[in-house]
Design a protein around this nucleic acid. Structure first.
Lengths: 367, 367
DNA sequence: GTGAAAGCGCTAACAA
DNA sequence: TTGTTAGCGCTTTCAC
């Protein structure tokens, strides 16, 4: 009778201990690989573990270790008011993909190949360390509060934040609450928080130099949104370099990092400067849009107009012709961001740091 | 002295109870919204909660409720041996995006716009219910074991599985272990497990009928991988319909659901049937590749060759011309898959069910 | 090197 | 309606 009951439900440490004829403490030590356990007993315990089919209960463990072995991977926008289902706060980075009934924030986010790469870098770093990412979106005040609450509850040990907007309040909320977090990309307003970023200006310089090197002289640019640091920096770097090479005036059309906005921008550029022979688009999606419009206007790429993109996302290869672009090592950056977070978790007191990556020119057919 | 200590660390139920002058149980009731609590006391407790800044500890709660309020969202491949970092088991669905150093499984997965849409559907359903998705990949035997272990530890309440391969062993492993899981797409070999799927054949029929309706008569198809149920079904549906309309012979080139494979397939088709005037590609990525190759071969789309895709993914709109395609309501399907899982968690005994969605033709410019 | 015992913070009987 | 109490399964001192 009593014997029967002990095999009910999922086995616990107690069950394993009984089967192995040792104490719970010893089993725990073996399971957690703590030294100071007799090899013979270790073996016995291991047997018992596999016989009973024991799996440690994570909640119980978390309760005492105070670690969740999970991190929140949060995609964060800045809409402050967009509550109640209305999507009036469309992030600048993304365009309307066919995201089903009422393209939501989440739908728009993943329409950009950028995020998949971030996920890749994060998972690749987390996985060998036995940790897992919990996906969260923080596009409304309410959603942001939920992220904070989630961390305060100890459901995740820290947060990895990818902002789609400038002026995102989330980093501030998190640091205020004393929660561990690391950002992808420098925050628009200074916050005492670690982040990884790209040397955007250097990347734009590479693009400018390449266009000049292949003999282009009437060069225009499709910039990213100018209220986003990356958008600003890419434009600044491009202009600077052009200026330094004797081209003080560069036609500019602002885009929103979407293919659609790239098409529109290219249209404007072409209307005002029909003789241009080179274009730098601040990301690949816009470069792809530019290529489409150029072709529709009878311009050959690269013969008539050379096009350089930015990011080296999947769009660069999907484009015809394949895009010459500036590579942003997103996966490596995401992995580093994760490393910074885990580091911070291991050493709670450590100061905020930033790691800046250098971009690289990838020459393909478009320029 | 003693008073000082009680405010150390994060506040617990105990702290709130003391502040409110009630018992832990009462606070717990208020926090969890259980009825039978005096409104006045409720108010007092709520005050105490906000004063103390209380956040319930999830591990402690999970320990007793035996729920994690999390589900695993696992992208699963079938590589049985691919251990040790070598990526010899490339899933059929995805092609080599510029996924950074050594395009990993994870990188390839997110190169397909399909996954973003799944995530969207899942998150949209989960979020209002206070649950969260933990992202996992299961492309090796080891990784699959980790998924099983993760669930057995109670870290997640169930699993949502999106397979990229036929013959995926994960569904079997999960059901064997008595774990709750739901699939996106019918498993290649029958398993007693719930799933959502699309009426692929109907979708292919729509494509065939449309091509015929716009007057095409020399129609070929770029199929998906033929060891995947979706690939088979789309081909079967297409052929059936063509046959029924008096076209017993349809040239076929097999692709792997990647743009690149679509390009190659189109090349083959064109070489053997230079006079074709219509193409049905089993997904948008391949349709896009086909469009590129057609243009490179001097064919205009849709004037010379009409092209129909499948999925209505972001690629359909990114393509020039925008693709006429068969819409797969991925977000809705993913949401339904999630609903099925939560349902199953609520009623553990319930039998496996399947929900099949009907596709819809979306007419754009390519056909 | 091993065991006994004390909690981690919470929920859910059961009493009152 | 509210409080008391007994664990949930685990890790971790502290003795031995």
């Amino acid at each position: 009778m009593t014997d029967d009951r002990r095999s009910a439900g999922t086995p616990t440490l107690e069950d394993v201990a009984r089967a192995a004829g040792v104490s719970r403490a010893t089993v725990s030590r073996v399971v957690n690989g703590v030294r100071n356990v007799d090899p013979a007993i270790q073996e016995v315990v291991r047997q018992a573990v596999s016989v009973t089919g024991y799996a440690p209960n994570r909640a119980a463990r978390s309760l005492v270790t105070r670690r969740a072995d999970a991190v929140a991977l949060v995609v964060s926008g800045a809409g402050t008011e967009a509550e109640a289902g209305q999507e009036d706060s469309v992030p600048q980075r993304f365009g309307g993909a066919p995201g089903g009934p009422g393209s939501s924030f989440t739908a728009q986010v993943f329409a950009d190949p950028f995020f998949g790469r971030v996920v890749t870098g994060v998972v690749d770093y987390l996985r060998p360390r036995g940790m897992h990412p919990v996906l969260m979106f923080a596009e409304t005040a309410r959603a942001r509060d939920e992220v904070v609450a989630y961390l305060r509850q100890g459901s995740a040990d820290g947060a990895l934040i990818v902002s789609t907007h400038a002026e995102d309040p989330l980093p501030g909320l998190l640091t205020e609450a004393g929660l561990a977090a690391v950002l992808y990309a420098r925050p628009a307003r200074p916050v005492r928080i670690s982040y990884v970023d790209l040397a955007h200006q250097d990347g734009a310089r590479l693009a400018a130099e390449h266009l000049l090197a292949v003999g282009r002289r009437r060069i225009a640019t499709i910039s990213g949104p100018l209220d986003v640091p990356a958008g600003q920096a890419r434009l600044a770097g491009f202009r600077d370099t052009m200026e330094r090479h004797g081209h003080p005036y560069v036609p500019i059309a602002e885009g929103r990092f979407t293919q659609e906005s790239g098409e529109a921008a290219m249209g404007r550029l072409l209307a005002e400067h029909p003789d241009l022979d080179g274009v730098f688009a601040a990301n690949d999606l816009m470069a792809m849009g530019a290529c489409h419009v150029l072709r529709e206007h009878g311009r050959r790429v690269p013969e008539d107009v050379a096009v350089v993109g930015f990011d080296d996302s999947s769009a660069a290869l999907a484009c015809r012709p394949p895009l010459t672009t500036v590579r942003q090592p997103v996966e490596a950056m995401a992995a580093e961001m994760t490393r910074l977070l885990l580091d911070r978790l291991a050493r709670p007191g450590s100061p905020a740091t930033s790691v800046i990556f250098e971009p690289e020119l990838v020459v393909r057919a478009s320029a």
